[in-house]
Design a protein around this nucleic acid. Structure first.
Length: 462
RNA sequence: GUGGGUGUAGCUCAGUCAGGUUAGAGCAUCGGAUUGUGGUUCCGAGGGUCGUGGGUUCGAGUCCCAUCAUUCACCCCA
């Protein structure tokens, strides 16, 4: 049989031990913070019914869904369609039309929509407000590039069944807490969909809100001129674009921004509401002495179209890798699954991008604790038998320890310990067995001592 | 979906512009110097359909075409 070159799909990655230790470091911090704020974990399946996923992420999102081919004879439905519908030929040739016939399941695109589905399905077991966190991979059929993968992990925290803005405040605290512990200096950008709706309303283009927000979202990246160009292209009137200018250029401190905004949006009920909400959130945040900077950013839009209130996005200062955390309030995500009037708010940490940031900043701590601390050299059968009980005692004392499984040459065993960065090697041969003593080699200093097992354990723990 | 870059040893790459014996280096691996001592040093070994297919040529890793993979950017997004 011809051998094949091993490979994995593009945009996916293997994680080797060093990487896993570091990834777990990130996950552990995030998990601890989540739990500290009273959130509990859930998990949902990697695949969902396509009907659960489709239409929740906008047109672009639908395109980026990984679809799973039906099992068995997946063309059967097309054939039976043929007998009653003469247009079946066109179905077979049109991917979009064909898809629903041959695929009913898809890989989840994010954790929020499956969560909404979960909440509706389990509504009778859940006490509201329901605070959950969820750390799992998601998949997007995107073209991979820097900081963008087709399989990546999201760490979601959401609270559903409460309208209080305290929740928004708490989520910002969580962001601050997590990035502080990870040693990442972050900037938290806050906006509100209601403000954006208000703006669209005021300039008389309420129905074009998506186009408007998508365009001004790019302000920082492509500049004002290009934004206006894109707005024009999307069919926004010249007059509206002109009206928009002072709004997206709004300068000054929060204290000055808010009155100006209120003045501009006073004719729009929803806009005013958005400003008031944001003011309230900001007022709370001011009292909390956060380490991160937070700011009102009217150009922040976020692509997902289920957001209805506050929207939040976090970027790492000095590292250009896109957002490392984002989220917002969604008032009616559960409505589509038959549970209306339940509002939720949540954020999602992008673990993979956080990893990339920490790596670039060289901010990972020494990870020696997670690996083996003591290794026994294996001299042969008799020595093995003698060492195994000692090994157990060391492990019982809470020390990570192992014995080299084969009686290989010393050189081989020592280099194994060396590459695994094991700090202590214990040698027990005939002499040591006779004297009931250990020879312990410190691999960092090269120093070697003879010592009793009990002494070694005591020294180690102290 | 659109545009650019790159494919040579397990990994990082040189060699490609100007075609010419047997395609190189570093790192990694394995063996030895050293039969109870790693990380340093020295010696040695294994490892290549030069992404794939076709073309030009006396001759192609090198030039041409196609194709695949990968990567960066756009769209969009964590």
């Amino acid at each position: 049989m011809a051998t094949q070159k091993p490979s994995i799909p593009k945009g996916t990655r293997d994680f080797s031990p060093i990487e896993m230790v570091r990834r777990n470091y990130i996950f552990d911090i995030i998990k601890n913070v989540f739990q500290k704020y009273g959130y509990l974990p859930i998990e949902t399946p990697a695949m969902e019914n396509l009907s659960t996923l489709l239409g929740k992420y906008g047109e672009e999102g639908d395109r980026l869904l990984f679809k799973i081919l039906n099992s068995g004879d997946y063309l059967q439905k097309i054939r039976s369609q043929k007998s009653e519908d003469s247009s079946s030929k066109s179905i077979a040739l049109d991917s979009n039309k064909l898809a629903p016939f041959i695929s009913e399941k898809g890989l989840r695109y994010d954790l929020t929509v499956p969560f909404a589905r979960y909440v509706v399905q389990h509504r009778n077991e859940i006490t509201f407000p329901f605070k959950r966190y969820q750390i799992q991979p998601v998949w997007r059929a995107d073209r991979p590039q820097k900081g963008r993968y087709r399989e990546f992990f999201q760490c979601d925290v959401d609270v559903i069944g409460s309208n209080s803005l305290i929740n928004e405040v708490e989520l910002v605290q969580i962001i601050d807490d997590v990035f502080d512990r990870l040693g990442i200096v972050s900037v938290i950008k806050i906006n509100n969909r209601k403000i954006l709706s208000g703006i669209a309303e005021i300039i008389g283009e309420a129905d074009k809100i998506t186009d408007i927000t998508v365009a001004i979202d790019k302000l920082e990246k492509i500049g004002l001129e290009k934004v206006n160009e894109e707005l024009n292209q999307k069919g926004i009137s010249k007059k509206a674009i002109k009206q928009l200018q002072p709004i997206i250029n709004l300068e000054g401190k929060l204290k000055e921004k808010f009155p100006k905004l209120l003045e501009i949006l006073k004719e729009s009920e929803i806009g005013v509401k958005g400003v008031e909400e944001t003011m309230q959130i900001m007022r709370h945040l001011k009292d909390l002495n956060l380490k991160s900077k937070f700011k009102l950013d009217l150009t922040l839009a976020r692509g997902l179209n289920y957001y209805t209130g506050a929207i939040i996005e976090v970027i790492a200062k000095d590292i250009n890798i896109g957002s490392i955390c984002g989220g917002g309030r969604y008032d009616d995500l559960t409505g589509i699954f038959g549970l209306p009037d339940v509002s939720g708010v949540g954020i999602s940490f992008g673990a993979d991008r956080i990893y990339d940031v920490l790596k670039e900043l060289n901010r990972f701590p020494d990870d020696t604790k997670a690996t083996t601390q003591v290794m026994f050299v294996n001299f042969g059968e008799k020595e093995e038998k003698y060492c195994l009980p000692l090994l157990s005692q060391i492990r019982k004392a809470g020390i990570n320890a192992e014995i080299y499984p084969d009686a290989m040459k010393m050189k081989k065993q020592m280099s194994y310990a060396n590459t695994k960065k094991i700090p202590f090697v214990i040698l027990i041969g005939e002499n040591e067995m006779k004297d009931n003593i250990l020879t312990v080699k410190n691999m960092n200093t090269g120093e070697q001592v003879k010592i009793l097992l009990s002494e070694f354990i005591n020294d180690f723990i102290a």
